[in-house]
Design a protein around this nucleic acid. Structure first.
Lengths: 147, 147
DNA sequence: GGCGAATAGTACACATGTTAACCAGATCGG
DNA sequence: CCGATCTGGTTAACATGTGTACTATTCGCC
């Protein structure tokens, strides 16, 4: 009836569907540990950092917006998984790191996460998956820099 | 420090980043027409259907969850963009279609949407984009059927 | 030094994601 | 028939997405 691009053939829909089919496998496991997908992203990002990181840095690494990070950190520090202090040389900036308890949680959950990722990798093929990820990175970089 | 897979190399993060880099270009245009990304998905899905469709069908085609579709339809019918009636043979089922005003809105927004999509296609390459979408579809199908 | 612009972070408001509970209409087996 | 069950849809509750406004610093510059 109209000339618009097919629904299912659009990239945003394909990205959404692909992500949902993958995340569907992770969420139940995370729920067993009372973690949302986003909370787990924040914990992982903190775990990957050796030095403390600030809110902006976390937002960038986790692909979350600053207001979301603020709320998630409130929940995680409340639960004692994250420690927070103020930077001495810039009183606006926060210094965030995993608490010992947070480290324990990450160490507990990570193997489960990795196991599920392995299933996904096996189902699709490791090489094929790797190539797909590379294409996605290229895509993001091209769009973010161009214009 | 731990053996976990690199953050940025994980597929879910790559999918998220890619989608965000694309959607960033669409959202301002949709906001100009007072539409959210999800409302536009619903309108497009309705526009693509010749016959009326029910809530479940919309949820499936738009990759939204039923509760979200319920709320979005409430907003769209409120604005007079969508018409809703009850199915005669199954009083639980809704019959949804675009109102004339809704058709007008879709016809107005679609060219803008298509223009942005063209930019994206040009930036990444049409053939390459097409192949990427195919891979994403394959990925979703493999994961949804296997296990 | 001190004022205006930039920056980090938060607070708010509204829309959606996610899960579970719930209601009414449809279906099936006895 | 009719009650047990299933199914379409909504409601509810809480977490996140998204854009905007606002506070507290810090910075640039005169």
């Amino acid at each position: 009836m109209n000339e618009m691009r097919g629904f299912d053939e659009s990239l945003p829909m394909a990205l959404l569907a692909a992500r949902e089919s993958a995340m569907r496998r992770f969420r139940p496991m995370l729920a067993d540990h009372d973690l949302t997908e986003q909370q787990w992203r924040v914990l992982r990002a903190l775990s990957a950092e050796s030095a403390p990181i600030d809110v902006g840095g976390l937002a960038e690494r986790t692909a979350l917006l600053a207001p979301s990070v603020t709320r998630i950190l409130a929940a995680l520090t409340e639960r004692g998984l994250v420690d927070r202090t103020m930077s001495v040389d810039d009183q606006r900036r926060a210094e965030l790191r995993l608490s010992p308890l947070g480290e324990t949680i990450v160490a507990t959950v990570a193997p489960h996460s990795e196991a599920i990722y392995q299933q996904v990798e096996d189902a699709f093929g490791a090489a094929r998956l790797s190539k797909l990820i590379t294409e996605l990175h290229d895509f993001a970089h091209l769009l973010n820099e161009g214009t």
